[in-house]
């Protein structure tokens, strides 16, 4: 089924030896035995930023550039803790933040989480929210 156009897709079939979870655990070491004898955290079955970027590349070469960008933002967001990701989502909902708060969020993503693509995306949102009256207001 696989052809050259798809690179190594599916990665599970073609790159299993090099696949690692977000925790760094090799996929080979995520076994039934391990669940009995070792402490397995959710990071042990979470996708790593490297794998997300590899999947982004697969999507881009197959003609899905927006999906590729999404997966690249996702790769960046693997560094952001669960609760923080949810807080960021909440901030992006309409009428939640000031323009400056979005700029601060973008700075934080860029510096603290090394997430430049997502940071630019947030800046773009902030500018649109400002133009369209979607920033926080004290009206209600």
């Amino acid at each position: 089924m696989t052809n050259n156009k798809n690179g190594d897709y599916p990665l599970y079939a073609n790159r299993i030896d090099s696949l690692r979870a977000a925790s760094g655990r090799a996929l080979h070491d995520l076994s039934l035995q391990a669940t009995l004898t070792e402490e397995i955290s959710s990071a042990d079955y979470s996708i790593s930023p490297q794998t997300l970027r590899a999947q982004a590349e697969v999507a881009r070469s197959a003609g899905y550039p927006q999906l590729a960008q999404n997966l690249e933002r996702a790769a960046e967001l693997t560094a952001v803790p669960n609760e923080t990701v949810l807080e960021m989502y909440e901030m992006l909902r309409p009428h939640r933040c000031s323009f400056e708060e979005y700029q601060e969020l973008a700075r934080r993503l860029r510096e603290e989480f090394k997430a430049p693509t997502t940071a630019s995306f947030i800046e773009e949102a902030g500018a649109v929210y400002q133009a369209r009256g979607l920033l926080r207001t004290d009206r209600f």
Partner: peptide, 12 residues
């Protein structure tokens, strides 16, 4: 933008 961010959050 919030929905796109959420999509990336799920994918992450």
């Amino acid at each position: 933008w919030s929905k796109a961010f959420l999509a990336s959050a799920y994918a992450s």
